[in-house]
Design a binder for these strands. Structure first.
Length: 126
DNA sequence: ACCTTGACGGTTC
DNA sequence: GGAACCGCCAAGG
């Protein structure tokens, strides 16, 4: 069975902003924690992004899934230990969307999401 | 209230 | 590249 990623903590506005920013990452692309923090208006709070993703409702948010697996660290690596179910699940979900993962690493140069102006405005409006 | 623990990141060497 | 260091701050014990 896949590891449960949801927890019981109550979502606050910060979590919601983070989830919404993550929802904007297009299929087949990835973003790093700090990038999402910035987009969510929380510069310097990359760790909070990890926390918030750990409490994503399985259902999603406002009827839309939250693609938590598209978020990796600034080194282009999956931030779970390689021998964990979480790691394998994230890797599999990424590979399902044609993202190349080698040894837990992804080439940011090829797969990092670079939002255009329209996407930026969309996220900022929430 | 204090201490530790993180799905982190920028700097520096 | 990579490793050590520090800043960050919400949760949980």
């Amino acid at each position: 069975m896949v590891t449960q990623l949801t927890s019981a903590i109550k979502p606050n506005e910060k979590h919601i902003k983070i989830w919404q920013a993550v929802q904007a990452i297009p299929l087949g692309k990835v973003a790093c924690y700090g990038q999402i923090a910035d987009l969510a208006g929380l510069p310097g709070r990359a760790r909070l992004v990890g926390k918030a993703l750990g409490s994503v409702p399985k259902i999603g948010w406002r009827g839309q899934a939250v693609p938590w697996h598209r978020v990796i660290n600034s080194q282009g690596k999956i931030s779970f230990a390689p021998d964990t179910d979480n790691f394998r699940q994230q890797r599999n979900l990424l590979q399902d969307e044609q993202v190349v993962v080698i040894g837990g690493k992804i080439k940011l140069k090829d797969f990092q999401w670079q939002p255009d102006l329209a996407e930026l405005l969309f996220v900022l409006e929430g």
